[in-house]
C-alpha cells in the first residue's frame, strides 16, 4: 500500500514499534530509575501464645546500595543493618552482633516497591512459575508452583490482587498445609508509587497462630539529604 510514494505498511509497522516503546517499554524503564530510595517510620507488633513484641523505629533503603537499615528506638536504641545474607546489630555505634540470615533486601517490601514488583511479590524472578489464574469477585488469584525439584521443600503460593494492587498472599508448606497469610492494606500513593501502609501477617504452626502487624508512616522517596543511614558503615572484616 502506497501513499505519495511512501510505503504505508512500513510506516504502520514503524508506528506500532514506536507506540510499544513509548507506552509500554519506556514507562517501565523510567519508573525503574525514578525511585531508588525509600524511608519512613515503621512499627512492628507481634503476638503469639507465648510472647509479645513491639518494635518502633525508622527504616532506610537505597536499592543501589542494597542495605536495609533500621534505626530502632524501641524496645532499645539500636541500629540493625541487613546486607546480603548478614544481619548486623549496632548499639551506640558499636557492632554488637553479626548473624547470618536470608537475603532480607531482595524480597523486602522496599525493594519490591521501588522495582515495581510488589504486584507479584517478586515471584516472577524466583524459581516459582504460574500454575493457575482465576478471578473471584474483586480478586484476581494467581497460583504459583515451585520448580519440580524444589517441591520437596517448598509449597504452592497463592497471590491475590485487587484493583491491580497486591492484596494478599497465602503460603503452603511442602506437605500442602497452610503455613501463613499476608495482607497488604491501606495503600497510599507517594509521587505515583503505591505503597501499603499496613501489612498483616498470620503464621500457622500446627494449631498455633502468630500475628504480626507492620505499619508505616511518613514515607519519603528519593531523600537525598540523608546519606548516613542509607549507607550505614559496616565493618570491613
Amino acid at each position: 500500500m502506497q501513499l505519495y510514494g511512501i510505503n504505508l505498511n512500513i510506516l504502520m509497522r514503524f508506528n506500532i514499534s514506536v507506540f510499544i516503546i513509548f507506552f509500554f517499554v519506556l514507562p517501565k524503564m523510567i519508573f525503574g530509575q525514578l525511585f531508588f530510595r525509600i524511608e519512613g517510620d515503621i512499627t512492628v507488633k507481634e503476638k503469639s501464645e507465648f510472647q509479645s513484641q513491639l518494635t518502633i523505629g525508622k527504616f532506610y533503603y537505597d536499592k543501589n546500595i542494597g542495605k536495609v537499615v533500621y534505626n530502632i528506638s524501641f524496645p532499645e536504641k539500636q541500629v540493625m543493618v541487613s546486607k546480603d545474607t548478614v544481619l548486623y546489630q549496632f548499639v551506640n555505634g558499636e557492632l554488637k552482633s553479626r548473624t547470618r540470615t536470608f537475603n532480607m533486601a531482595q524480597f523486602s517490601i522496599f525493594n519490591l516497591s521501588l522495582n515495581n514488583q510488589l504486584i507479584n511479590y517478586g515471584f516472577e524472578e524466583s524459581f516459582y512459575s504460574i500454575d493457575n489464574v482465576e478471578k473471584d469477585g474483586e480478586l484476581v488469584i494467581t497460583t504459583w508452583m515451585p520448580e519440580k525439584n524444589k517441591r520437596k521443600f517448598f509449597g504452592k503460593v497463592m497471590i491475590s490482587t485487587k484493583n491491580k494492587r497486591l492484596h494478599g498472599i497465602v503460603f503452603y508448606n511442602a506437605r500442602g498445609e497452610l503455613a501463613g497469610k499476608q495482607f497488604f492494606e491501606d495503600y497510599t500513593v507517594i509521587k505515583g508509587l503505591p505503597f501499603p501502609m499496613k501489612i498483616v501477617k498470620i503464621n500457622y504452626i500446627g494449631d498455633i497462630k502468630t500475628y504480626q502487624i507492620t505499619t508505616f508512616e511518613n514515607i519519603q522517596l528519593n531523600n537525598l539529604n540523608e546519606t548516613y543511614f542509607y549507607d550505614y558503615p559496616l565493618p570491613v572484616n
Binding site: 503476638k47 513491639l54 474483586e138 480478586l139 488469584i141 491475590s160 492484596h167 497469610k181 500475628y211 502487624i213
Partner: peptide, 30 residues
Amino acid sequence: FAGNSELFTYDREEIESTFKQLNELENYVK
C-alpha cells in the same frame, strides 16, 4: 466459579482484641 477468595480473609475483630494491649503500649511510646 466458586473460587478461593475465602482464603484471603481474616478475622479483624480477633486481631483487634489480640493487639489491644500492644496498641496501648505503642501509643504510650509514641
